[in-house]
Amino acid sequence: MEEPTFVQVQDLHKSFGANHVLRGVNLAVGRAESLVILGGSGAGKSVFLSHLIGLMQADRGSVTIDGQNWAELDRGQTYDLRTRFGMSFQEGALFDSMTVYDNIAFPLRRQTSKMGKGEIKDRVAECLETVGMPGIAQLMPSELSGGMRRRVGFARAIALKPEILLFDEPTTGLDPIMTTVLGEVIIQMRERLQATTITITHDISSAKMIANRVAMMFKGELVHQAPRDAFFNCDDPIVRQFVDGKSQGPATEALIKR
């Protein structure tokens, strides 16, 4: 028998009061796949990622990771499953009472199999090197620029070399060079570690670079999913408007209303 799809989302609904944000999301992502989710702001992308990692519970429908449904896990199982994830937040979400070093070391120290002090130090240095910021380990987050904070958040997400990585707009506000560098890191994570990556981005060129598959979130649904080349060549009017960045089209109304 075939093993279940690694990430399986079925008919996911979520409302905040009267605001029906997710309206039936369906998604299947296999191991070592790289999915990019595009979509206008307020479409529900960040809320969707929160469901994937079990930070929010579905009103209706299910989210299953490697055969385990978040809704059926108890507290211990929830945290166990989360150790297989890495996530970088749109807001950065660095611990502002800790140095950059302690931020990146945090997931390393929290895991059950203890790493030695030296190992942690090496891994933190390696992660900072990866995001192009060696030697800032002793700074506090408040001493960093927005783009630097985002990169530290990215470094923290990959520190544990997790099986599945969620990136919420990792490159928004970064210069084009850094955007490409982080794109390459995402590709490496997939190719070397066989990690599954799900990335939210507005940046069409980095989407083209890192994706195996692209999905478009629109009004709380994933309206169009396709392999990368098929996606960017399709003629779905919503996708076309977004990819070509046109101000007139079917997606405009939905964006302006919010």
Binding site: S50, R75, R82, T83, F85, M87, F89, A93, F106, P107
Partner: peptide, 9 residues
């Protein structure tokens, strides 16, 4: 949330 994600209650 970041703490929760890093398996810390």
């Amino acid at each position: 949330d970041a703490m929760e994600v890093m398996a810390t209650d």
